[in-house]
Nucleic acid binder design. Structure first.
Lengths: 215, 215
DNA sequence: CTTCACCTTGACCATACGGTCAGGAAACGA
DNA sequence: TCGTTTCCTGACCGTATGGTCAAGGTGAAG
């Protein structure tokens, strides 16, 4: 566990804000703790401490640990889907896939905890979000495969397997969040700088877009 | 937890074999349980049940849960390093990187649990194998970067950033193990067939090798 | 001010977990 | 056969954890 830093939590006056603000602080703390310790290793006490609340107060807002975890995972899934829109309304793979890589790399940098929670959830067999995988994710995947296939048919890129292209996009971009600690260690223990993130994005886009013959 | 299948454990007669056989069964069970539940979610009782031994017997061979976990992670790291030799004594990127992708994809198929344990360990900040990252892995990485740079200088591939190429190789190949459940779900719930694994390997190699201008 | 719904929290409980231990069984060497 | 080392295991222990509860505090509405 690296950071003991407490989540900032403003004391709101208005009644409506109390709930929203506390739920926000709890979810933010939970995302961090679940990411750093895993579901089994996370404790409600630790989340409570990081959110700056007594443990009993957590159970007032979230009945069980599973409830809290479910909310965290759902939140992340929504962010994933938002980024996915980069894919749409693009004339070709250079713009569409390029924007998608940009968006996903940005998420890896700004939401590393969320990415790890998602990875952990999937690695453990997706006990909580299995239905999302079978519905929303599958539909989204099928749709993007159709788009890629269209680009191939239009001669805008080489005839690669669209499904494995998607896997490569997910793997490569999320790697910078999920394995961020390893990358930081190999970067002499220092987090990637702005310039290094730019270099990472450029490298990924360059290799992928050339790999599919889009440039 | 998907599989309750007990690890096969032969009852050996000879004294020497008892230790080896039991340690093997425990490590095999532990790898599976740690992968499916994470370190925090795994219990010694569950590992004992899967190994077909009383819990107290586990503590006879491995003093603590951390000890057992450490052994599991080390075992995986050795497998990683063995595969790395594919990189060496290759005349160029097509052979070297091609063989490396083959080897790592094979490991993702044959040792999915190990890959997940490794991923989980790194995601949690590598509390156990931090020193490996800073020594063995860093040295190996630097060496391969030098090899890739030589290939670039010799005009055998485009001048990509060798470090980000390595990250892409790791990410893409390990994705098929770590996110195997997601891939299986998107494959109508069925594990990838032999033919589909061949297709995956070919796709990855094709996109990567073209992406770096080696073919 | 009164009322009431909502929020807060220290104390508490049952359970499950990692780990211990003593005593017995089994393998080995002489 | 006997002694010694290694292996086996049921019973047990202290602790930490998820969750509960009852009593008290606090903001808003009339």
């Amino acid at each position: 566990m690296s950071g003991d830093a407490q989540i900032s939590r403003l004391k709101p006056g208005r009644r409506t804000d109390i709930r929203r603000e506390n739920e926000r602080a709890i979810l933010e703390a939970a995302e961090k703790v679940f990411a750093e310790a895993g579901f089994g290793g996370a404790t409600m006490q630790l989340i409570a401490d990081m959110a700056g609340l007594p443990k009993a107060n957590l159970h007032y807002y979230f009945a069980t640990k599973e409830d809290l975890y479910r909310k965290v995972v759902q939140q992340i899934f929504e962010i994933w889907l938002d980024a996915a829109s980069s894919f749409d309304d693009a004339p070709g793979p250079v713009e569409g896939i390029g924007a998608y890589i940009d968006a996903k790399m940005d998420i890896s940098r700004t939401h590393p905890h969320g990415s790890k929670v998602w990875a952990s959830e999937v690695m453990h067999g997706a006990p909580v979000i299995q239905d999302y995988l079978e519905t929303t994710l599958r539909d989204w995947t099928d749709g993007r495969i159709a788009v890629i296939q269209r680009w191939i048919d239009e001669g805008k890129m080489r005839p690669v397997n669209p499904r494995h292209l998607l896997y490569m996009l997910w793997a490569t971009t999320q790697h910078y969040a999920d394995f961020g600690h390893q990358i930081q260690t190999l970067n002499n223990g220092k987090p990637l700088s702005d310039k290094q993130w730019q270099e990472a994005k450029a490298s990924v886009k360059d290799m992928v877009l050339r790999g599919i013959g889009a440039i």
